[in-house]
Design a protein around this nucleic acid. Structure first.
Length: 457
RNA sequence: UCCCCGGUAGCUCAAUCGGUAGAGCGGCGGGCUGUUAACCCGUAGGUUGCAGGUUCGAGUCCUGCCCGGGGCGCCA
């Protein structure tokens, strides 16, 4: 039996509810089209209902989609029909019905109700029936996040998140990278301790990881091409739509690779991920009313510009931008809006970048690095670079950044024993998903966002 | 850390110059055999965030506080 088949149950094994109707097979809404004409069983929740005299329309969701269930008086048992009027939103229900193709239905199929049983009927669901004119504000929705995720938009966003994750993993494996994850508890800072969450580790100070990169460099010297995928933590007091205190990052690290190798990889990767979401998550993009023409434009080649080009671009647009500074949110937006696809900005001034980045031999004040800015003002979704591989140079960089040498002893070992040129990057999952889904704020792209002063639920 | 905006019914919002606190949605009751986050009729629902002040009179003006949102910096 394939994994796919096992997801639809053979009701007879589950006992309880389904013994009552052994002839109807439990199916999921996403599979209904394969059961036209059959009587099937759905197990889900009541999402919405409408009534018109002697006909009732229930919108039922089961996690895989939404479907309309129709009940006409005199065509269903009277006690079943009467039960429908007592149902509240989010009632958990199990129902049997006959699958019928119908051009009027958004998904192409509907169910004619035969029987319905109520698992639980909640009388006071805290999120009101949501209509465009009265969507509660986020201050009220966030404390109800555990219920908010049942909503249509949140459902669509999180399904696309899953697709992005799997697309990234499939792509990396197809390119010969293997997944190996670094520790989350660490004793050292990658870029200084000010933005780290400090914890008590058996009496020793430790931190939640803000990046697994240094460990990934060690793994790259063992496996050549590696990537990690996991949570990272930044104790930044940020209150913007692009920031979370806990977010997920994919961090590839590639031995013997150059900046140019990295740019080619990033380009292929983003093209693949966007195409896969367009192909596999059409329904969800429709729910979100995403302008898919903006996603269809994501093709090779991506523009590659240097920091100097970007500064010139800003100055042409009327920005009073001082050379040598890092771009702020307004600048990133202005740069990205000059292109219809992600723009790769390289060769930033080394002094505004992390200590481990390799300098460009032809311009020693520039780092061999790249920031990828997503279109439509979604900001930086990827940051990467070649890493300095020379031991003594790296020691000097650490000292210049006023970082202690001792915690980096193992990291410096990598440069003492078979050091090679290498490069890697980090991709911010939530920002990438926010861009692809076209939603305004990254907090809706993660199931339970961790924000400044918000850790519940 | 700083700057900006907001807080009125369960939710989203009105309330003119300081002069009787309203509407839509949701709830409840009723109607409708094809609705697409349905529609129609009716109905209940308020310490206007808190504390003070000005005034004949404060949702509205002033002061302080609390809570929320957004932005800056930092970053993915």
């Amino acid at each position: 039996m394939s994994p796919r088949q096992s997801s639809s149950g053979d009701g007879s094994r589950n006992g309880g509810f389904w013994r009552r109707c052994p002839m109807a097979r439990w199916v999921y809404i996403e599979d209904l089209k394969q059961h036209v004409g059959e009587e099937v069983e759905l197990r889900g929740w009541l999402h919405n209902k409408r009534s018109s005299g002697k006909i009732r329309f229930l919108i039922v969701r089961d996690g895989t989609g939404f479907v309309q269930v129709v009940a006409v008086k005199n065509q269903v048992a009277p006690e079943v029909f009467a039960r429908l009027d007592d149902l509240f939103y989010e009632a958990s229900i199990i129902l049997r019905g006959k699958v019928r193709e119908d051009a009027r239905a958004p998904g192409g199929v509907e169910l004619d109700l035969v029987d319905l049983s109520v698992v639980q009927n909640p009388e006071d669901y805290p999120i009101p029936k949501v209509r465009e004119e009265n969507i509660p504000d986020v201050g009220k929705l966030l404390p109800l996040r555990h219920l908010w995720i049942r909503g249509r938009r949140q459902w669509a966003i999180l399904r696309i998140r899953d697709e992005v994750v799997r697309a990234l993993e499939d792509f990396m494996h197809a390119r010969g990278f293997i997944r190996l994850d670094p520790p989350i508890l660490t004793a050292m800072a990658v870029e200084g301790t000010t933005t780290l969450f400090k914890i008590d580790y058996f009496g020793q100070p430790a931190y939640l990881s803000q990046s697994g990169q240094l460990y990934m460099e060690a793994l790259a010297m063992s496996h050549g091409k590696v990537y990690s995928f996991g949570p990272t933590f930044r104790a930044e007091k940020s209150k913007t739509r692009r920031h979370l205190a806990e977010f997920w990052m994919m961090e590839p690290e590639w031995a013997y690779a150059t900046l140019e190798d990295l740019l080619d990889l990033v380009e292929d990767m983003l093209v693949y991920v966007v195409a896969r979401v367009l192909e596999q998550r059409k329904t969800e993009l429709d729910i979100l009313e995403r302008d898919t023409s903006r996603l269809e434009a994501i093709r090779k080649p991506f523009p590659r510009i240097t920091y100097d080009d970007a500064v010139k671009l800003l100055q042409e647009k009327g920005f009073d931008f001082p050379f040598g500074e890092d771009f702020g949110a307004d600048e990133e937006t202005a740069i990205s809006e000059s292109f219809d696809r992600p723009v790769m900005v390289t060769h930033y001034p080394a002094k505004i970048k992390a200590f481990y980045m390799k300098r460009d031999p032809e311009q020693p004040d520039r780092a061999r690095c790249v920031d990828v800015l997503a279109p439509e003002g979604y900001g930086e979704i990827i940051g990467g670079s070649e890493r300095e591989e020379d031991h003594d140079t790296l020691v000097r960089y650490i000292q210049e950044h006023n970082l202690p040498l001792e915690p980096y002893r193992w990291y410096l070992d990598l440069r003492k024993y078979g050091t090679v040129p290498h490069a890697g990057f980090g991709l911010g999952l939530e920002r990438t998903v926010a861009w692809i889904t076209g939603i305004h704020h990254v907090r809706e792209t993660i199931p339970f966002p961790r924000l400044l002063d918000r850790i519940y639920p």
